[in-house]
Amino acid sequence: MAEAAQMQVSDEVAITINNMNKWYGTFHVLRDIDLTVYRGERIVICGPSGSGKSTLIRCINALEEHQQGEIVVDGTLLSSDLKNIDTIRSEVGMCFQHFNLFPHLTILENCTLAPIWVRKIPKKEAEETAMHFLEKVKIPDQAGKYPGQLSGGQQQRVAIARSLCMKPRIMLFDEPTSALDPEMIKEVLDTMIELAEEGMTMLCVTHEMGFARQVANRVIFMDAGQIVEQNEPEAFFNNPQSDRTKLFLSQILGH
């Protein structure tokens, strides 16, 4: 599985991050981040809380501003120009820890809203696409309901479908399973695995090490705002180099 997935990675660059720094006030959250993501890569980012992993992927679609260095997403340089930001955001899908579905809209409306208003796709076509992706995440029968009527796992799958409806070229996952009951984690991970198998470029902040082993082609370990170690999953888990990584792995895999 891991080898098969690796073969899908192309040498076309999807994201380049060059010497990027970010501060919250005077607090230096991200320090000298250098990262190149190739199309089709599935990268898992892990690390202790407060290490800056969420901030890193939120910088990629400009939910957070970086102060130094450059981020190039899909050939577009991230700057304060709003046009660039909106272009990048419509190419990059994002799933949040707390789903952030729109509670005043039905599941179907959640999925069609952005395609209709941002992509200017006719309503009918957008609904067909939405139903296609809702079928893919296996909840087409919930289309008419409101988010509040769904379980956490279902809501997260809707959130994934909502992002996919924009036909993004890159997907960002910000701890998608951390707010879920253990039983629901699997259904969300299954959806993500399926997505990975189709060759989607993915960056996942997650603590699901099983997922990392099965799907990722690269694991990045962050601490104190820096990339401490990155490697292929096998090597990363079986033969970590840094002491910090060893300590972290012993803590999360120890039980």
């Binding site: 909106d86 949040f96 952030n100 579905l101 729109f102 509670p103 809203l113 952005a114 941002v118």
Partner: peptide, 29 residues
């Protein structure tokens, strides 16, 4: 919740769209 603004942003909605379609319907309610 801040997440509503972020979700609207992350889908590529611009400010007037995010306000009109996502934020104001909920805030007014």
């Amino acid at each position: 919740p801040k997440g509503q603004y972020e979700a609207a942003d992350s889908l590529g909605l611009d400010y007037p769209q995010a306000m009109r379609l996502i934020i104001l319907p909920q805030a007014l309610k």
